[in-house]
Structures are given as structure tokens and as C-alpha cells.
Design a protein around this nucleic acid. Structure first.
Lengths: 223, 223
DNA sequence: ACCTGAACACCGTTCAAGT
DNA sequence: ACCTGAACACCGTTCAAGT
């Protein structure tokens, strides 16, 4: 709402006195307030009281703008301390930090995810995760593979957790589809469970546990 | 290319003689040929030599069209037989069938994924997977949770595997980002590995193994 | 150096009107 | 019942022109 650029710069003579940083700030605020769909060159220009061409002059195009927005948030992302007694505990906790951060900043995360730039947002946290994997005894390709598996698992859970309310119409979501089907060879208890959404927040740590334990087991066997 | 509606129907008198099925067929062909971005009301109308309004009359809107396209492919998806000696083997294989099918039909899968309707495409295969989980001894909430964890893991891997070539500019992809960074506390071997992409096709079965084994272990302990 | 105005080539969707 | 034409409200991007 309030302009973030210093009032002292308002007397530069030129009409708007806009900074590249001001634009990125406004874009970030726009996404955080109204979701990734609101990040439009025209909406952003209107918010800043300039023409869209001004944005192009400062930034250079929508892709660059999106990248700058994600970087901006990434810089301001709080580094959380990793907790846990065992090595496996600490690895899982580092992964859950990425999950928590994604949920806290759901709109920008959704933007980054949609644009294929998730790593741009989470890189510092990914480094922390990789470090914990090395402490746990994994190195080289083994460390990278465990790292990738964990990240992709978190990404998969985020696909559902960050899915916008509207999404497809009616009920193309899993629970609705399973309510319309009566397959043979599946018990009623399971079918009933399938018709309500899983609790991702409790399912994720369990799943990560399984992946981490399996990865660390390989290092135990080859000492 | 060639019209799929029977020539016998061409003498209905009305101008185009278009069927709802013809439209869905053309839309599916459009996506499979040129990717999800090519599914546009206007492009589709041009392909069928009609106005966009004709599409609206037969289908009712873009969301319904997308749903119909996904359903169409889903019907024509080959049911593959599940292989494997042990219960865990068969569960993993059922999950890998979903992965393989997604890669084979990458464009429509990307469309379904982007629209939040992945389950609409994979439902028959998901049922097969759930059945194998029951054979393995899981029921009710436990079966659903294992099912969900497996599907979300596959979904996470697909996010990377189906990422369009263009995506974000320059290098916002993981490998490029890790090439620009030199974090402390991480060995050179690991850093070097991080700078080239992981082999998802071999990493996925290993990861699924870990999840499935952990899930089946809980049923072993409580007989 | 910084910004505007007008234009181009796209979108999805609707509405009155034709046969 | 089936289809057209014109219009509305959006997009990203570019280019000549102003100060």
C-alpha cells in the first residue's frame, strides 16, 4: 500500500522516480496478497501508477520479473535452526523446514512451482538439507540422490497442499472421484478411507522417515 | 488431420455437422501434438473450421473441455498387467506403471497436472495400485496413506520429468543454481554430483521401495 | 536516462442474431 | 438444434516518440 521507496528520492525530477527494487517489492506484495495469478504486467503497472512499458524498461520481461520476485523472498526467508538428536532426525527436520516454509509462503511458492523455479526459492534450505545428509554419512552421488528423492517427495506433497481452491470444476479431486467408483477387490474400510483426504502434515514426516532410513542404511552396510 | 466423424453424417444439413466427440478428439490430438499450451478455444475452433462459439455450444467452457480431453485419454489407456513375485514388488511395479504411462503421454499428463486433475487421468491405475496394497495386507486408513504417499512421490518426480523445455529462462533449474554456489560444509564430490541431474528413472524405484517396505513393515508387526 | 501512447497478436467468454 | 459475428475484458510485448 504505502510506497517503499524513500521520499528523499521523490525529487529526482523524472516523473515516477521508480526503482527496480520498488517494482520487485510491489510485485512480491501483489503475489502475497492476491496469489500468483495476480502477477500481471498490467496489474503491476496499475499498482505503481505507471505504464507497462516502464516495467519492461526496468526489469526486461515477465520471466525476469518472476525470477526477481522469487529471489527477493528467498533472501528474506528466515534460516531456521535444525533440531533432532539422531542424524536421521535432523535430515527429516531439515526437509520439513522446506515444507513449512512453502506453506507459510504459499502464494510465492505456488508461483515458483508453476514457473519451474522451486529451487530458486528454496536453495538455502536445500543446502542445509544436503549438509545434514553429509553429516549423516552420505557423500557424492549417494548424497545427491537422497537429496533429490527427499526434495521431490516434498514437492509432490506440495502439489496437493498448494492446489488453489478453484482448480478444476466439480470434483476432479481424488476424494470426489473415489466416491463415484465401486471397484472390486477393495474392502469397504479402505474405500471409505479413500473418500476423505489424507492428513498430509502427518503423512509427510512418516514418508520422509522411510526414505531417509533407507538411504542411511546403505551407508551403514558399506563402512 | 483427417476428420473422425463418419462421412454418412455429413448430410445432416447443418453447416459443420460437428459432434461433441469430434471436438474432444480434435482437442486431444491438439494437445498430444503441440503440448498443453496449444489447447486454446480459438486454436481448436480454427482446427475444426468453426467459430469458438460453436465449441461453447457443444462443450460449455474450457474447464469442461479439459476434463473431457483427460477422460478421453484415460479411457484409451492400456491396462498393463502387474508383475512381481513378492507383494512389495507388485506394489512398486503398479506405481511404476503410473510413472511410465505419464511419460508416454507426457503432454496430456502435463495438462492434467497443471489443471489439478491428475487423478482423473490415472484413476484406473490408482485402483490397481490400491488393490495390490490390500493384497499386501494393508487396509483402511493405512492402505489409503500408503497409497497417497506413493502417488505423491510419483507426482513429485513427474514435476521434474515433465517440466517443459522452455520453463524459466537462463538457469533457474537446480543443476545450474548449484553450479553458482560454494557452500561450506559440503564436500567437493557431493557438490560435483549436485551439478548434474539425477537419473530419475533409477532413483524412483529405489525411493518407492523404501516407502513400500516401511508401510508393509507396520503390518508385519501387528498381525 | 526514464517514461508515455498506441499498437500487435493473442487469450476466455457472452450475447444477439441467423437458419 | 446448431452455428456465426461482433463485442468485452483481459493478456505479454514492442516500437516510436517524448522529456
Amino acid at each position: 500500500m504505502a510506497p517503499t521507496h524513500t521520499p528523499a528520492r521523490s525529487d529526482t525530477g523524472k516523473r515516477a522516480g521508480l526503482d527496480r527494487d520498488d517494482i520487485v517489492d510491489a510485485a512480491l506484495a501483489l503475489v502475497e496478497a492476491n496469489g500468483p495469478g495476480a502477477l500481471t504486467m498490467r496489474k503491476l503497472a496499475a499498482e505503481l501508477d505507471v505504464t507497462t512499458t516502464t516495467i519492461y524498461w526496468h526489469i526486461g520481461g515477465r520471466d525476469e520479473l518472476v525470477g526477481a520476485v522469487i529471489r527477493r523472498l528467498s533472501e528474506h526467508l528466515a534460516e531456521r535452526a535444525i533440531e533432532g538428536d539422531t542424524a536421521a532426525d535432523r535430515v527429516v527436520h531439515a526437509a520439513l523446514c522446506i515444507w513449512d516454509s512453502a506453506l507459510t509462503n504459499r502464494h510465492v511458492t505456488a508461483l515458483a512451482h508453476r514457473e519451474g523455479a522451486s529451487s530458486l526459492l528454496a536453495l538455502p534450505m536445500e543446502i542445509t538439507l544436503l549438509r545434514e545428509l553429509e553429516v549423516a554419512g552420505l557423500h557424492g552421488v549417494a548424497a545427491r540422490d537422497a537429496h533429490q528423492a527427499i526434495l521431490l517427495c516434498v514437492a509432490g506433497f506440495l502439489v496437493i497442499a498448494l492446489r488453489p481452491e478453484r482448480a478444476v470444476p466439480l470434483g476432479y479431486r481424488s476424494e470426489a472421484l473415489w466416491a463415484e467408483v465401486a471397484p472390486h477387490g477393495i474392502t469397504d474400510a479402505t474405500l471409505r478411507a479413500q473418500r476423505e483426504p489424507a492428513e498430509l502434515a502427518s503423512l509427510l514426516p512418516i514418508t520422509l522417515r522411510a526414505i531417509v532410513d533407507a538411504a542411511l542404511r546403505t551407508v551403514q552396510e558399506t563402512p
